[in-house]
């Protein structure tokens, strides 16, 4: 639940900025969808059930879940139009998210680049 509020707080403003926001978690799709509708967010929820993508990015917290299962490390990665990583932040404490202002600043500067 707290994860969801963090996402909402952080991204509701960013989504108006002409970017694609992709939320990735091991959750089943239906739950992400319900969440998005509940929050009236337009970003896409993708299901990474076996953490294959989190693993490819080096974002797995081994046995970090409440039942000792592997979970993603909360992270925000900003890509430019060419798919190049321009900024990222990985949580050191899973309660904490990057400051919305930091993410928005990067997103706005990329949006204003030519293209």
């Amino acid at each position: 639940m707290s994860e969801l509020q963090g996402l909402g707080a952080q991204l509701s403003e960013a989504e108006q900025a002409g970017v694609e926001i992709i939320a990735i978690s091991p959750d089943p799709n239906e739950r992400g969808q319900q969440l998005a509708e509940g929050l009236r967010l337009r970003y896409r929820f993708l299901a990474d059930g076996d953490l294959a993508v989190a693993r490819r990015y080096g974002l797995v917290h081994a046995r970090g879940g409440p039942d000792g299962q592997d979970v993603p490390r909360p992270a925000t990665v900003v890509l430019d139009r060419d798919g190049i990583v321009r900024w990222f932040s990985v949580a050191r404490n899973f309660q904490v998210r990057p400051a919305p202002g930091d993410v928005l600043r990067v997103v706005r500067s990329l949006r204003d680049e030519k293209g």
Binding site: E3, I22, A23, S25, A75, V78, L79
Partner: peptide, 21 residues
């Protein structure tokens, strides 16, 4: 959904999160 499909379209923000148990 393929990430590469956004190339040349718009910036992308990837948000990895733990999920809701």
């Amino acid at each position: 959904v393929t990430l590469a499909d956004y190339r040349g379209q718009k910036p992308v923000v990837l948000v990895f999160y733990r999920g809701y148990w």
